[in-house]
Design a protein around this nucleic acid. Sequence first.
RNA 1: GUGGUCGUAGCUCAGCUGGUAGAGCAUCCGGUUGUGGUCCGGAAUGUCGCGGGUUCGAGCCCCGUCGAUCACCCCA
Length: 418
Amino acid sequence: MSKFQAPKGVSEYFPERSKYFEFVRETIIDSAKLSGYQLMELPVFEDTELFTRGVGESTDVVSKEMYTFEDRGGRSITLRPEGTAGVMRSVIEHNLDRGQLPVKVWYSGQFFRAERPQAGRYRQFYQVGIEAIGLQDPEIDAEVISVADAAFKRLGISDYHLEITSLGDSLTRERYTKELRAFIATLKLDETTAERAKLNPLRLFDDKRPEIQEAMATAPILMDYLTPESAAHFSRVKECLELFGISYQVNNRMVRGLDYYTGTAFEFVHHKLGAQSGIGGGGRYDGLMAQLGGADLSGIGFGLGVDRILMACEAEEISLPADMTLSLFIVPMDEASKRQAVLCARELRLHGISVDVAYGDRNLKSGMKAADKSGARFALVLGEDEIASGRAQLKNMQTGDSFSVTIRTLHDDLLKVL
RNA sequence: GUGGUCGUAGCUCAGCUGGUAGAGCAUCCGGUUGUGGUCCGGAAUGUCGCGGGUUCGAGCCCCGUCGAUCACCCCA
C-alpha cells in the first residue's frame, strides 16, 4: 500500500482502460465537430459569483456542492461544477456575442462537485459539452440533441432513452410555480419534504416514495401553462426529432438541477447504470447570457458524462476499438545493437511510424515475448549479424512470416506493409 | 450530508468456532546454439487499508479513521 491515495471520489484512468476512455471522449467530440462546433478551452476555476448568479443560489449544486476557496489575492474562487456558465463568461468577455452568430462551441474537461461518491458519481468527473448560442430555431434544439444521440449510436450504445420536456419561458415558469406551490400547500408533508418543496417545488415530482407519487398525480402540469409560442416551439422540436428518427418520451415532470434552463430540456437515461443513470442532459437557457451581462441571446447546449458513458459501454459489453497499435517492436541482442535499435526507432518515429524497443537487457526469448505483448504488428531482431550485414528479418507478428529488409531503408518497407 | 455492505500478493478471491497467510491469473527465469503466442518446470511477491483496544495469542472480536461500494439525496 502506498502512502498516498487519490483524493476521495475521483475517477482515474490508466492502461488498459484509459484507451477506452479516450475513445469515448474522442467519439463524442468528433460528433460535435461533425456539426460545426469548435473548441473552447476554458479554465477549471472561475470567480465564485459566476456560478452563484449563473447556476442559481438555491440549487443544490451551488448551495452545497461547490469546491470554493480563497486564492492568495483574497478572491473567492470555485472549481467549475458545470460548463455552461464558464462558456457564457468567456463568450461575453471576448465579445463573441457581438460577432458573427451563431456561436457553436464544444468543450471538455473535469468538473467538480463535492457530493458523496457512488458508482457513476464522482467529485471530479469528466464531461464533454456543446453550446449553440444566438439561435432560436427549434431545429437547433434538435441538432444539439442529435449530436448527443449520434455519439451514442456511433459508440454502439443502445440501451438508453431520451426524455424531453419544455419548461416554458421565465414568465410561464413563474406563473406555474405559483400554482404548484399552492397545490403543494394543500398536501400534508413531513418537514424535510416540505423544505425541499419550498426550495424547488418541481422536486416533488421526482420523489420516489409511492405516497408522494400518488399525491402528485393530480398536481398541475407545466405543459398546460405553456404560452402558444413555447408550445409551438416544443412541437417543432418533437417533429424534428421524429424526422431524425430519434425516439423520445415526453416527461413533463422532468426536473433539472440548474436554474437557468428555459424551454426545451432533455436528458439521456441509460438502463444499466444503477442509481446514477443520467449519461447526459441539457436544454435551453434563453435568459442566461443577458443575466451575466452579455447580449440578450438565447442558447442551448448539453453536457455528457464521459465517465458514465464509458460505464454504459462496459455495461452493454461493447467492444471498443483500441485505436493506437504499435507498428514495430525492435529486439536488440546486445549493447552494440541496442544503440542501433534506438537510433533506428528514432528515425522511424520521425517518419511517423510508431516504434518501441525491448529495453532492459532481455534475452531473445523474453525480448520476443515483450514484442508479442506490446501488440506491435511487426518485430525486428537486431544483433551482430544484422549490424554487420545491414539487413534484418522483419517479422509479421500475426502470421509469423518474415522477410528480409535493409535496415537503412526500413521505413520504406514498413510504409508499404502497414 | 445520512444509512447498509466491504477493504487479504499487481488483479480476482480463499482463509473452518481467534493459534503470526494461500489459490488462480499476471510477472520473472528456464525447457542447450538467434525469434513471441500453446504446453511443462521453477522463482519472487504481502507491515492481511491505517491507528488503537480486548486476548497468552487477531486477517478473523471491539472502537476509531481512511477508502471503496450500494441506497437516500442530487445529478454527468
